Deep mutational scan, measured.
Amino acid sequence: MAAAAAAGAGPEMVRGQVFDVGPRYTNLSYIGEGAYGMVCSAYDNVNKVRVAIKKISPFEHQTYCQRTLREIKILLRFRHENIIGINDIIRAPTIEQMKDVYIVQDLMETDLYKLLKTQHLSNDHICYFLYQILRGLKYIHSANVLHRDLKPSNLLLNTTCDLKICDFGLARVADPDHDHTGFLTEYVATRWYRAPEIMLNSKGYTKSIDIWSVGCILAEMLSNRPIFPGKHYLDQLNHILGILGSPSQEDLNCIINLKARNYLLSLPHKNKVPWNRLFPNADSKALDLLDKMLTFNPHKRIEVEQALAHPYLEQYYDPSDEPIAEAPFKFDMELDDLPKEKLKELIFEETARFQPGYRS
């Protein structure tokens, strides 16, 4: 834990890192770190609560700039109880001085990944967590956004079992017609939660990839272990087919990539493993919904509104309290091709509203 900075004593240090967030945020305490930044909790002297502050230093890398800009653009436009918001952003007053960006968010005690390492969940908890994931996802999908990296560590939890989806750095506007060349190379989302079509096709992607990830998360809540822990690309596919069985001819016809289709045709026939054999203690309604989410063919996979209306979630289902976005989200430009200098300018502009004396 960093010592509390005395008023006016300059930035606090946390594990050798400068955290320049005073005077409003003090009493910093280390939480963890990701690929390009550290997260601390801090005391907000204005709202009198502890908050989470993520320090991001992305400006050396085009990919990190892209992810940072995506996350900020999306989260500043989203407003939903099951999606983490941005409360404040701290950065230098000029673009030349801006080396880091500090993002202030609600402090959540833990995440689903940490929880599943230590606790076996009751059916009631599984049901409530799944409902909140789908409630947040309904809003995301209504904005025409794909999260693309749903996994237990991106689901934040607090002691009252509130759940918030975080990390929109890989999110995209849904565009089933656009052929994202190089899709697989830039697709760094965790393999275990990846839909089979991501490994088999490169053309376009749809909201059904997020539903697949939610199915993987439900299976993990039922058993405290990942359902498809593939060691590499082909191993991942083999794990999936080992449980779902061989795809039907109709399902194979959806695979545009001939090499991928021929690979699947070359494999020995596998039978589907019954879900109640894998999860003998699970609620039968939970397994019915799991089956509809972990469907090989993305066109037959359940959609988020149908999933919310499934009998497993009937005690929570309330369409009048499951809000959607006001308007579909649009990125003005494809960020993939922009140089990091341009992305830095866009991050600077996007964060201006939090600067003292800002006038829109």
Rank of each mutant, 00 (worst) to 15 (best):
P226L: 02
Q236T: 05
E341M: 14
L134E: 02
I347A: 12
F329D: 12
G8S: 09
V46T: 15
D318I: 11
K203Q: 02
I86W: 05
V173N: 04
Q355T: 15
E322S: 14
D318A: 02
L265K: 12
L346M: 01
F183S: 02
F59W: 07
G230I: 12
V14R: 09
L112M: 01
D162H: 14
D318P: 15
Y113D: 12
D175I: 12
E314C: 15
H80L: 00
H120Y: 07
S142D: 15
Q249K: 00
S122N: 03
D336S: 13
H178F: 08
D88V: 06
E345S: 14
M108Q: 12
E349T: 14
N87F: 12
I74A: 05
Y30M: 09
L343D: 05
P226E: 02
G37Y: 01
R15C: 12
G32I: 04
L252R: 07
L335S: 10
Y193C: 03
N87E: 13
H147M: 06
Y131D: 13
P339R: 06
V304R: 05
N45V: 12
I347P: 04
P229W: 05
A286S: 02
L264M: 00
K259Q: 02
L170T: 07
V214K: 02
L335N: 13
I103L: 10
S266K: 15
I227C: 09
S208P: 03
P23F: 15
Q315A: 11
D251S: 12
I56D: 04
A143L: 08
C216S: 00
A42W: 14
K138D: 09
H178V: 07
A307W: 09
L163V: 13
K207C: 07
K231Q: 06
F331N: 11
D337S: 12
H61T: 08
K342F: 15
A4S: 04
P93A: 14
W192M: 01
D175W: 10
D20V: 02
V46S: 12
Q355V: 12
F279H: 15
Y64C: 06
T26P: 05
H61V: 04
R353T: 11
R91P: 14
V49A: 12
Y128R: 10
T295P: 00
K99E: 03
E186I: 13
I302A: 05
L290M: 07
P323A: 11
E326K: 02
M13K: 00
G8W: 13
Y43Q: 14
T295A: 06
C161H: 11
N158H: 06
A2E: 15
C216G: 04
L155I: 15
D210N: 02
D88Y: 00
H61R: 07
T206R: 03
D179M: 06
Y139D: 09
F331L: 00
E326S: 14
L267K: 14
A5L: 04
T68D: 11
V51F: 05
D283F: 09
E350F: 15
D44G: 10
I140Q: 03
P339Q: 00
F354L: 02
H310V: 07
V188W: 03
S320Y: 01
G245W: 03
N271I: 00
I126K: 10
P339F: 13
D336L: 12
E334R: 12
S248N: 13
L278I: 14
L76F: 13
G37P: 03
I256V: 07
D288W: 10
A5R: 04
P268V: 12
P229V: 04
Q62E: 06
D332E: 02
A219I: 05
K114Q: 03
G204H: 10
I347M: 06
L200S: 02
K292W: 11
L289R: 06
Y30T: 13
F59S: 03
A327Q: 10
P268R: 11
A3M: 09
S142Y: 15
